[in-house]
Design a protein around this nucleic acid. Structure first.
Lengths: 228, 228
DNA sequence: GCCGCCATCAACCGTTCGGTGGATTCCGGG
DNA sequence: CCCGGAATCCACCGAACGGTTGATGGCGGC
């Protein structure tokens, strides 16, 4: 059963992090790193190449360039493709590997987006190596893995009974965070200023604040919007 | 001259990052990692212990627990002490090691604060290993090291002629980002509401915006305030 | 079918906010 | 010594904002 080791692909734009992950993972028995990628595009290219290689050599699979079972994926990658988009692209493939999100600071919006995109699990980078090891193995078995912190956040959100913002409200909150005035928002969304005000009232209500600036602060704190 | 290797202490709350840094640095000739710390408090404790050890054994310095020449310090560490504070505490010691800031995403405010706190250099985590190696060696020689990206940011800021906010204005901008109204800010700072408004006008002027929310957005974008 | 949620729009009113033009004190540089 | 910047304060005004009430239509669940 342990004849075939779990094959892992690392996707992270920080060389330092890739190096650390490789060091940690390679000392685990039954787990092997088969590749690294610095961004989403490179990750997809690697998967393409691996698929071709498997097709070409139907007999003994070569040690490198092997089709990975688990992809360790960073969100917030500097260059171009966001981790969520990369995850979605990978999950859309014929026989997708498990995608394990591994990120530093998690906004709630990111977690939801990643899960929606097809991620198998969600870990935080400050997790101890043992936790990481267990998560990789679980992901290889097809199980869903949520870091305790992440799970707590999700539960906390549900428990807090925070009524989630509607799609339109989220959109307006985002524009709010860009510093736009009501009229500018109305023009951007092709709706009347009155509608913007109505949405704002609902947003204030749900976030329990009473000004646009406080809504932005609360939205950032709750991870409803990205600072960047 | 190369008899004594450069001794490095790693300070980062992410085990993965520490592992990666250790792997990269330890394969450099003439550089050795003498310790790791998961937060600022642990880093200071390590320096204390190292100082004692040196005092106790005046002859052959033991390989481990040696007083580091360079501290690789992460900013934004989860638990308790911020990297800037840790840097300040280290720089205030009798014979301080060089502190090299190594962080992921750099806000201008962080850079300035770190330099003010006594940091020797500022690197980004997405820097390639070679750059990191060169920086550690330069820091050991007492030189100042700025990552090209960081240097560009600082130059860009100066070139843009952006008049830096006064201390008081920065303070108010921070409170603004928390969503406080003018009256709340005035009470928090024990000044009149009129004064707050005056400061706000100056802030809008300097940031080239015309509303409090836009000022927060601009301040976040320019790295004048921390999202957290 | 009805109820609730979402999204859209409107009118009203009081408050806050932004803009302007002053004023004072303190402090440090030329 | 005088000038400028920073920080403090005041008054006025118009515009933007927040709060309320009310109304319409679509869409999905009970």
């Amino acid at each position: 059963m342990n004849a075939q080791p779990v094959r892992v692909l690392l996707v992270d734009d920080h060389p330092v992090v890739r190096r650390g992950l490789r060091a940690i993972i390679e000392e685990l028995p039954g787990v092997a790193v088969v590749g690294e990628a610095g961004d989403g595009v490179a990750a997809l290219a690697f998967l393409d190449a691996a698929a071709d290689a498997v097709e070409a050599a139907a007999d003994g699979t070569p040690p490198g360039r092997a089709r990975p079972d688990v992809v360790l994926m960073d969100l917030q990658m500097g260059g171009g493709m966001h981790g969520v988009d990369a995850t979605r692209a990978i999950a859309a493939r014929p026989t997708p590997p498990a995608v394990l999100i591994l990120t530093t600071y998690s906004t709630d919006a990111d977690i939801l987006a990643a899960v929606e995109a097809g991620a198998t699990g969600y870990l935080l980078k400050d997790a101890p190596p043992e936790e990481l090891a267990a998560a990789v193995r679980a992901a290889a078995r097809g199980e869903t893995v949520l870091a305790p912190t992440v799970a707590a956040r999700l539960l906390g959100r549900v428990r807090a009974g925070r009524p989630a913002l509607s799609p339109r409200e989220s959109e307006i909150l985002r524009l709010l965070a860009e510093g736009l005035a009501n009229r500018q928002i109305s023009r951007r969304l092709f709706i009347s200023e009155a509608t913007v005000k109505t949405h704002l009232v609902h947003i204030y209500d749900k976030l329990d604040v009473d000004s646009r600036t406080a809504a932005v602060a609360a939205g950032l704190a709750a991870g409803l919007i990205r600072p960047a």
